[in-house]
Design a protein around this nucleic acid. Structure first.
Lengths: 109, 109
DNA sequence: TTCATATGTAATATTTTTATTACATATGAA
DNA sequence: TTCATATGTAATAAAAATATTACATATGAA
């Protein structure tokens, strides 16, 4: 969480955190795990849109998910916050950049 | 730098850090200030594109700028890294979200 | 005067991100 | 069977971010 971090992972982290809805989702999840529909109501987002945001948070390893079946038989997809403690300084960024391979437009024809 | 941070400022910070070129720019500036053309060569970016990226870094207060005139009379615009040390945890994000007023599509007609 | 070096930006194009609409399936309760 | 609750996603639209092109000005040196 606080160790030297790979450049691509660090970038994915910042990308995940660079949106107000996703910050709010993180905020909501600090009070405990929520299943998708529940989270959609709390965040006031449509499920398709919420899924998109959750994918970015998953990619950055900020949330994890698990399927469960409720007492009344409904399938529930729970999202849980993965605790983190990032220490961001210029030196850490300089170190991370050494392993940064992501290029915008990479693979362009 | 490490104190509780305003939600909008935190978002601007993450937005500034969520691009590989900008991370590289920060990395380059860790070795000392550079003027724009110098930085453009080091980062292998066109000046117009570099200006766009520098604006985002300035907005997030990650860099500052000062104009100077070189010995041979050229105007030089120097960019300097502002030291920072951010501590990012779920609780800090939850606190910051309370003061988050930025909404995508805010002000839509 | 011409060249090489700077800064500065407007207009446009391209790409990516964000958001919406419209579906599908499955479960248990009424 | 119908209703309310879930999950899941494809197709599309809209908005924002990124990138390029084409200019402008100014300086000192050759």
């Amino acid at each position: 969480m606080s160790e030297p971090i790979n450049g691509n992972e660090l970038l994915a982290l910042f990308e995940a955190l660079s949106n107000p809805h996703r910050l709010r989702i993180i905020s909501i999840l600090t009070s405990g795990r929520k299943y998708v529909s529940q989270l959609a109501r709390a965040a006031e987002l449509s499920r398709p849109l919420l899924y998109m945001h959750l994918k970015k948070l998953e990619k950055a390893k900020i949330v994890k998910t698990e399927m469960e079946v409720s007492d009344d038989g409904k399938a529930l997809k729970y999202y849980t916050l993965i605790p983190f403690d990032f220490h961001i300084t210029p030196d850490r960024i300089r170190e991370a950049v050494k392993t940064l391979t992501i290029q915008k437009k990479e693979g362009k024809k």
